[in-house]
Amino acid sequence: MEVANWFTSASPNSKFRHNLMMARATPDTRYALLNNRLTLRPRNGAVEQRELNPEQLAVALQECFELKVENDWKPLLAKLGSDENRA
């Protein structure tokens, strides 16, 4: 377990070190974020995916994941939401 924890948090080859990834489940919807791609999975099963620009990414972090977006995050959000980074 210790080696696996080290790998995910410290190895240069870990996908967790090179991507913004998070998930949150509410009683009505499951939210998943991979870089600038937001996936919503409501209880009714209608999956929705959105590619977000930097401003939309900041809003999603606040509204879907209940995070307070700090000013020093803005360069990273700009990089993740740029056209060249869209998957």
Rank of each mutant, 00 (worst) to 15 (best):
V47K: 14
N36R: 09
A78Y: 11
L57P: 15
R30M: 13
W6P: 00
N44H: 12
K74I: 05
A58D: 01
N36T: 05
W6K: 03
P54V: 01
N53H: 06
R30Q: 13
P54Q: 03
S9T: 07
L20Y: 02
L76N: 02
A58N: 07
D72C: 02
N13K: 13
E55C: 05
R41T: 04
C64R: 00
K68Q: 12
T26I: 01
L76A: 08
T29N: 10
K15S: 14
T39E: 12
M21E: 02
M22V: 03
C64N: 01
D28C: 07
K79S: 09
A46W: 14
E51F: 12
L80H: 01
W73L: 10
F65N: 00
A46M: 12
Q62T: 04
T39G: 04
N71H: 06
E51C: 06
R86D: 05
P75R: 08
L20T: 01
E66Y: 08
V3C: 04
Q56F: 12
N71F: 03
R37N: 08
T26K: 08
M22C: 05
N5T: 00
K68M: 03
F7W: 07
N19C: 04
V69G: 10
L38K: 06
D28H: 14
S9P: 00
S14W: 10
E48N: 03
N35M: 03
W73Y: 06
S11Y: 07
F7T: 00
D83L: 15
E84N: 09
P75E: 01
Q56S: 06
L38Y: 09
A87K: 12
K79F: 15
L61P: 06
N5Y: 14
W6V: 00
M21A: 03
L20N: 02
L52S: 07
A60E: 06
D28M: 11
L57M: 08
G81K: 10
Q56T: 02
R24I: 00
A32S: 15
L80C: 02
L20E: 03
S11Q: 00
N19A: 04
D28Q: 10
M22A: 01
F65Q: 02
A32I: 11
E2T: 09
R50K: 14
E2Y: 07
H18N: 11
E2P: 01
A25D: 12
A10W: 10
A78H: 13
A23S: 13
A46E: 05
A60V: 03
R43P: 02
L20Q: 03
N53A: 11
A25F: 10
P12Y: 04
A4M: 13
E66H: 08
C64D: 04
L20W: 11
V3Q: 13
P12V: 05
P42I: 00
E51I: 04
